[in-house]
Design a protein around this nucleic acid. Structure first.
Length: 108
DNA sequence: GTCGTGACTAGCC
DNA sequence: CGGCTAGCCACGA
């Protein structure tokens, strides 16, 4: 078992763990992430988990966006999120992901 | 045990 | 395209 993230609840660490399997250049949504964590519909709870646990580079929290393709938010600053995504090949235009459907990563 | 909060989502106008 | 409403969940006080 991983002794990391021991101050977090089962749900929180599960979210972080699943999020870690999202490859660079791709993005996922809070809803999909929640579903992958075993709690479909807990998109909001996922947002809270990420915001309260900025596990930094260890977890690609910057690859999580809204279901409609918009960025959403970022504990380190939305600007940083855009920069990180851009560095991975994800283009952000006017606050929304370019070809969101195409960059969207589905868990399987 | 109840209430308020938030990096959400889908539907409707 | 924009804005509003209602429903959803987990956590801390």
């Amino acid at each position: 078992m991983d002794n990391e993230s021991r101050d977090l609840t089962e749900f929180e660490r599960k979210v972080l763990r699943v999020l870690r399997r999202v490859p660079g250049g791709k993005v996922t949504t809070y809803g999909e992430l929640a579903r992958a964590a075993g709690k479909p519909g807990a998109a909001r709870a996922v947002g809270n988990a990420l915001n309260k646990n900025p596990a930094a580079p260890h977890v690609p929290c910057h690859r999580v966006v809204l279901s409609d393709g918009r960025l959403g938010g970022y504990a380190g600053g939305i600007k940083k999120k855009i920069a990180l995504l851009g560095g991975e090949g994800v283009t952000v235009k006017s606050g929304h992901i370019a070809d969101f459907r195409q960059k969207f990563y589905r868990f399987g």
